[in-house]
């Protein structure tokens, strides 16, 4: 909590990411004026021209660490922040760019760039928590607007945010959805995936893609067995775990079990 009597200062920081999670803050629309009244948005390059100075009560950090420069910069952010909250799959798991962790980055660079020697990058994409202590991690690719508002509201109230870490299945059942896997034979990562999206894809008869990363106690091996029975091959299985949260330990380890 901020010291009483002063409007808490909020900063939004960007590392390797697509900006989608930051945009969720601007996308708050109905709540945006309320947020702007409750906190001083002191640093948010996406929306304002503010400069980095002083200390921030709440820092929202988007993106993963992929360059030596960013690996330094995140320590500066941590030093300037009382509370550091990471937002989105990049910041909490390494993001889609975490796919580099399974490949040879030097080889990629030599193929993609005309002047590979201009590129200064790390061999891996890692979450913020691998570099500095993180006070809270908000999952999702992108994060859910309602959960972002909840995190800010909980910070202001000095309470724990309500962002359950159980499976997406529970969200489906609360909504009364018919299970797409059991009733339609549609492959779904819901049973191993962290809730938060409100079971968006299954509500539209699609399987869950695991955008929120592993749930609190994931057990992907038996799910993979069931997905195999639905017709998925080893390569399909490896790819389904290697999307936005490819580097999250439970998904990474399961994907490695399906090396062709």
């Amino acid at each position: 909590m901020a010291a009483s009597g002063r409007t808490p200062r909020l900063a939004v920081w960007k590392f390797a990411s697509c900006d989608g999670c930051q945009l969720t803050l601007l996308d708050c629309e109905d709540e945006l004026l309320g947020i702007a009244a409750a906190v001083e948005i002191a640093y948010f390059p996406e929306a304002t021209r503010g400069t980095i100075r002083g200390h921030y009560d709440l820092s929202l950090v988007e993106g993963s660490i992929t360059t030596p420069h960013d690996a330094e910069r995140i320590h500066e952010v941590r030093r300037r922040s009382t509370h550091l909250v990471t937002i989105g799959a990049c910041a909490t798991a390494g993001g889609i760019q975490g796919l580099r962790n399974f490949a040879d980055v030097a080889e990629y660079i030599s193929v993609v760039y005309a002047r590979p020697d201009y590129i200064e990058t790390l061999a891996t994409s890692t979450p913020i928590a691998a570099h500095v202590p993180v006070d809270f991690e908000l999952r999702g690719c992108p994060i859910a607007k309602s959960q972002l508002v909840e995190v800010i509201t909980a910070f202001l109230a000095g309470r724990r945010p309500v962002t359950p870490a159980h499976s997406v299945c529970i969200e489906c059942k609360l909504k009364g959805n018919v299970c797409v896997m059991v009733a339609h034979g549609t492959p779904c990562l819901g049973p191993v995936t962290h809730a938060g999206c409100g079971a968006l894809c299954p509500s539209y008869h699609r399987g869950c893609y695991g955008c929120y990363g592993p749930m609190e106690t994931p057990n992907p091996a038996p799910l993979s067995q069931a997905l195999t029975e639905l017709g998925m091959g080893k390569r399909d299985l490896q790819r389904i775990y290697r999307t936005f949260n490819a580097n999250a330990p439970a998904f990474r380890e399961e994907s490695e079990r399906h090396d062709a």
């Binding site: 299945c169 059942k173 819901g190 191993v192 994931p218 057990n219 038996p222 799910l223």
Partner: peptide, 13 residues
């Protein structure tokens, strides 16, 4: 325990 997903479906249905 090796087979259970702890997804909670059984309890909710």
């Amino acid at each position: 325990a090796t087979r259970c997903l702890t997804c909670g479906n059984c309890t909710l249905v």
